[in-house]
């Protein structure tokens, strides 16, 4: 049962139920999320919006298995990820989640194609299979011609496209984007949003995107607003 007394949709891909997240700073408890429920269906493109400190990034981290709730449960498909150990969570993330970060988080010592290949190093694919996957992912983001370039020689928009290629190269269940346009100019940001929208519409990728930019959230199929750790309103799908 969720916080509203309703049973969460069992067919939903993402089921966040009764989640609370409390951080401790000294003797002070900071309640970042309070009894929060959220479901995301397969193939949705959801934007999480809210002011700074509203808990949207924390929620994204819980859904991505980077953190655990203080209470409540987070289920992705058939997996109760809040119950997994650190080691199990690492394996789960490698198999099911693609991350796209605001600051791209590319390894500066690796070329674009090697950065994209990183998640594939955790699979049992052969080198040739990995190369094929990397080529496909780079083609999808339109960066085949920049494959051999190092991040420092790429523009911000290009770096973020490499980040997205890295996020989708394993064909994950979920693509989680934390302010993916937050560090880009409007033009580059639009290109990234176009790309995410295409991945959602054409490839059926389930995407959850944290943003504070209404222009970005307008591209999502649904926007969820957070305020002080709770959903402010959740339009019915």
């Amino acid at each position: 049962m969720n916080a509203n007394g309703k049973k969460a949709d069992p067919t939903a891909l993402v089921r966040v139920e009764g989640v609370e997240k409390v951080f401790h700073r000294g003797s002070e408890d900071i309640h970042v999320l309070s009894r929060l429920d959220l479901t995301v269906a397969t193939g949705e493109f959801v934007a999480l919006m809210g002011p700074s400190g509203s808990g949207k990034s924390t929620l994204l981290n819980l859904i991505g298995g980077l953190d655990r709730p203080t209470t409540g449960s987070v289920s992705i498909g058939d997996d109760r990820i809040d119950a997994l150990s650190d080691r199990q969570l690492a394996v789960w993330r490698a198999r099911h989640v693609g991350f796209v970060f605001q600051l791209y988080n590319l390894l500066p010592v690796l070329t674009a194609e090697r950065n994209v290949e990183l998640p594939l190093l955790l699979t049992h694919l052969t080198k040739a299979e990995r190369r094929r996957h990397v080529e496909t992912a780079l083609a999808m983001v339109g960066l085949t011609h920049r494959a051999k370039h190092y991040p420092r020689t790429l523009s911000g928009g290009e770096q973020q496209r490499v980040g997205i290629a890295r996020g989708i190269v394993t064909d994950p269940t979920l693509l989680l984007c934390d302010e993916p346009t937050g560090d880009l100019d409007r033009k580059s940001g639009d290109e990234i949003l176009n790309l995410l929208q295409a991945l959602n519409r054409e490839q059926g990728k389930t995407i959850i995107m944290v943003t504070h930019d209404p222009h970005a959230s307008a591209r999502a199929s649904r926007t969820v607003h957070l305020y002080k750790g709770q959903l402010a309103s959740e339009p019915t799908p």
């Binding site: 991505g64 980077l66 650190d86 080691r87 690492a90 394996v91 789960w92 993330r93 490698a94 198999r95 991350f99 970060f101 600051l103 988080n105 390894l107 990183l118 998640p119 955790l122 890295r166």
Partner: peptide, 15 residues
């Protein structure tokens, strides 16, 4: 820090 965290987020183990 960020690089190592990124690798761990991608699924690289802390061990």
């Amino acid at each position: 820090t960020r690089e190592i965290a990124t690798l761990r987020a991608l699924g690289f183990g802390s061990g």
